[in-house]
Simulated assay, not measured.
Amino acid sequence: MSTHVWDYLPEYEKEKDDILDAVGKVFASGRLVLGESVKGFEEEFAAYHGGGLCTGVDNGTNALKLALEALGVGPGDEVITVSNTAAPTVVAIVSTGATPVFVDVREEDFLIDPAGVEAAVTERTKVLLPVHLYGQCADMEPLLRIAERHGLKVLEDCAQAHGARHHGRPAGTMGDAAAFSFYPTKVLGAYGDGGAVLTSDAGTDAAMRQLRYYGMDRVYYVVRTPGHNARLDEVQAEILRRKLTRLDSYIEGRNAVARRYEEGLGDLAGPGGLRLPVTGAGNSHVYYVYVVRHPRRDAIVEALKAYDIHLNVSYPWPVHTMSGFAHLGWEAGSLPVTERLAGEVFSLPMYPSLPEAVQDRVIHALRDVLTAEGK
């Protein structure tokens, strides 16, 4: 049986009746766009995070883009972020006309290194955009202090961190705004695409609602400022409402898989060989992906194919090295930790309904390959 890093079908089999009921409810409601399901999800998602205001949008990339625009980012501005992220983080910045400025990440947890942030601030810097990567939060306290010193806004990229916490605070509640993705693979995933922006500021939320609906302000056809067509779909919103009630159980399931990997592989981990995920100080990890590291990554991933285990790499190409961003002028070697990680990291299968038998297959196969490789 072929093994991959993600599969939604086991979860769907368990939740099928509820998912199909959600679809039926929307179709029978008489309102297919910006109806009660979107409104209900926005309220419930905000409540899950302890309050605030939520605007549902069509995907996580637009959540970032519209949030940046709502925070006043535009041409000529700079946004500080990382290159060790999914490309949409940077696509969103560039699409506003702003320039992304990259800082390196920390060796131990792959998250933005606050030590490099202050030196990257210029008079054009408008926003700090930390990425809560792989399921845990960036080290927010020093970032927030830097932002306060320089009068900057902070936008959290929470696409991979639904339900994660940092010193007890939920991801998405520490900055001025936070962008979420509900792509199907996410910790809270839709059956299609979706996104949301969370904020405690009424002005930012009002701007978000205007931007997602062509720039119109309540009265149809009256555009106050050029916006976008970026509305969260009613069907996806209703599905997300149902799944939100199970989010904590999804996180528990992911942590159980992570513990099983730790127990099965921990004795093989060590300097110069396999390195397992490290949870940052004060963090609770939700393991969106379970990313391990090995200096002979490519040989290991290739060898596992003989066991019919096919793994992903998150991420093999740092954003600053991609041809689509060559105009930014970043040279190879400018972010050494990020570039080193790109040649060493790979992801083991991770989703809450991952059968224990499959986990064991992965553990045993990886142990065999590592033993053959001399660890």
Rank of each mutant, 00 (worst) to 15 (best):
V223F: 01
R260T: 14
H285V: 01
D193E: 15
T81I: 01
L68R: 02
Q160H: 13
Y288T: 06
A357R: 15
V358I: 13
K186H: 10
A164Q: 05
G116D: 01
G52T: 13
R246T: 10
G329M: 05
M322A: 14
P318F: 06
G116N: 02
L198M: 15
A161R: 07
S249N: 09
V219A: 13
P316C: 11
S334E: 09
L265C: 09
E331C: 00
N62V: 01
L155H: 03
R259E: 15
I251Q: 07
F41T: 04
L68P: 01
A28C: 06
G74H: 06
A147Y: 01
A196R: 09
H310K: 13
E234C: 12
L143G: 02
P114W: 05
Y220G: 00
D139I: 04
E148V: 04
T199I: 06
G24T: 08
P226S: 07
D18L: 15
G280E: 09
P170F: 15
N59M: 07
A342F: 03
G282C: 12
H327I: 02
E69V: 13
V369P: 00
I80R: 01
F102S: 02
E107R: 14
A46M: 14
V197W: 12
H228R: 10
R165K: 15
G56M: 12
P271Q: 09
F27Y: 13
E263F: 03
R149T: 09
H132M: 04
E11F: 10
P349N: 11
N62E: 08
T81E: 00
P184A: 10
E262Y: 12
W330P: 00
V131L: 08
D17Y: 05
V291L: 14
N229K: 12
